[in-house]
Computed example of a mutant assay.
Amino acid sequence: MTTMAQESPAVPATRGAAIRRHELAAFLRSRRERITPEQVGLPRGSRRRTPGLRREEVAHLSAVGVTWYTWLEQARDIQVSVQVLDALARTLMLDPSERVHLFQLAAATDPTPAASCPSLTPALREMLDRLEPVPACVQNSRYDILVYNRTYARLFGDLDAIPPEDRNCVFLVHTHPDWQAAIVHLDEVMRVMAARLRASMAGHLGEPAWKMLLKRLKSASPEFRENWDRYEVVGMRSRTKEFLNPYVGHLTVEHTDLWLGPQHGPRMLTYTPKNEETRERLEKLLEIARGDD
């Protein structure tokens, strides 16, 4: 009688979850200990013995309870929301790879910005490059900037220097000094952007990424809170825009949206010059961008 070798049992799901929790706890401790108080605007004090930040400091900066965060570093079996993971990633100054690792250890999906988009093919990226010196990018319905060409990167300053998770047009218009300085008629643009976001959000109510963006905007910008409370709604439309570029000066362009899928999905945004002076200045901006590469 032939007997078949018995296969080794798979690791139970509960054991796998416990392993992830311990890895998450160790990862959080290591990231906490590498950040100095000065990096986050806290005084060091003369009696500090803890390398890096204390647990209570991370909890305070992330707006979570000290006990809860302590349990997280103790690998306790607690639920962690994507909003809390996002706050911890910012407090601990995680780079993109570390942020991905954090969400993987927590068995969560990072909702901001979209990590992948089926429309972002190599051909589309080449198209963005070939549109230069016309500034162009691809955004999703939440106004996350997914990919862009060199002139768009320098249109409002230096987009490459902004962390990927902060590359959201509504957020930057309301919070980033370089973007605000570059936009002519800023108050009007803020009001329109809030109205557009409300229109887009109607199909995504309750989704974590949208709730997180709305919470950040309300927390960071009094102007956004005021405009949001107007309950205005504005749809997409082409329009003339004016910018004060820090490198080449005044630009007058035509804003056009080219849809890459369903109307509420990703779209290519272009700013074509409205006059010859703007065209020449965009060509000069491209030369500057090439020199920065």
Rank of each mutant, 00 (worst) to 15 (best):
G265C: 03
P122K: 04
Y152T: 00
C137E: 11
G157C: 09
E280N: 13
A17H: 11
E276H: 14
V100S: 11
A220L: 05
Q74A: 06
E56Y: 05
A199K: 01
E242F: 10
K284P: 03
P133R: 05
T67P: 07
G41R: 11
Y152K: 02
H185P: 03
P273C: 05
R15L: 15
R150P: 00
I183Y: 01
Q74S: 08
D110L: 12
L282A: 09
T252I: 09
G291E: 13
L205P: 02
R225S: 15
N168M: 06
P9T: 10
P164Q: 09
P246K: 04
L251P: 00
E223S: 11
R34N: 06
A106F: 06
P37V: 00
L214A: 04
P164L: 11
L172A: 04
H250C: 04
M127Q: 10
I288F: 10
N149S: 04
A25T: 06
Q6M: 14
A107M: 10
E207K: 09
A209V: 02
R279E: 14
A108Y: 03
L72W: 05
C137D: 08
L88E: 09
R31N: 06
A63E: 15
E165I: 10
M4E: 14
T36L: 15
K274G: 05
Q104L: 13
Q6N: 11
P9W: 04
G52V: 05
L146C: 06
L214N: 03
L159K: 02
A63W: 14
E98K: 08
A220H: 05
L217I: 08
Q139L: 12
Q79V: 07
A5Y: 15
L186F: 13
T36Q: 15
R29F: 00
P273R: 08
A17M: 15
R198A: 05
W210V: 05
P163Q: 08
L213N: 02
